[in-house]
Simulated scan of single mutants.
Amino acid sequence: MSGHRAYTPSLRDRLTKAVMTAAGYLPGPLLRPVAGAPRRVDGQVLDPHFQAGLRVISLMSEGEYQDLTLERARSVVERSAYTVSGRKIDLAVVTDIVLPLGGADPDRADLPARLYSPVDGDEALPVLVYFHGGGWVLGSIDSHDATCRYIADTGRLKVISVDYRMAPEFLFPTAAEDALAAFRYVRDHAAELGVDPQRIAVGGDSAGGNLAAVVCQQTRDAGEKTPDFQLLFVPATNMSARTRSYELFGDGYFLTRGNMDWYERTYIRSDDDRLDPRASPLLATDFSGLPPAHVATGGFDPLRDEGEAYARRMADAGVKVSLRRHPTLVHPFVNAVGATPLAKAALSEAVGAMRMALAY
Rank of each mutant, 00 (worst) to 15 (best):
V295K: 06
D305E: 13
H189T: 12
D305I: 11
Q218A: 14
M260R: 01
V234W: 08
T8H: 11
V330R: 04
E247L: 14
R304N: 09
R355C: 08
F254S: 06
D67H: 15
H49K: 02
A241H: 13
M354P: 02
Y310P: 07
H4T: 15
L31N: 06
V127Y: 04
L347G: 05
A317H: 01
G209K: 03
G139F: 07
F170E: 12
F131S: 08
A279L: 02
A212P: 03
A212I: 05
T297V: 11
V351L: 05
T8M: 00
H294Y: 15
V34S: 01
V137Q: 09
S270G: 06
R108L: 10
L193V: 11
S58H: 12
S10A: 05
S85V: 10
H4V: 15
C148Q: 02
L232K: 05
V319D: 07
R244H: 14
I141P: 08
L358C: 09
D178A: 03
Q44K: 15
S75Y: 12
L283P: 04
A109L: 08
R244I: 12
S280W: 08
V321Q: 08
V202Y: 05
A207R: 02
G299S: 09
E264S: 11
E177M: 10
Y82A: 05
T95F: 01
R165F: 11
S161V: 07
N210R: 01
L231N: 06
G63V: 06
V77A: 03
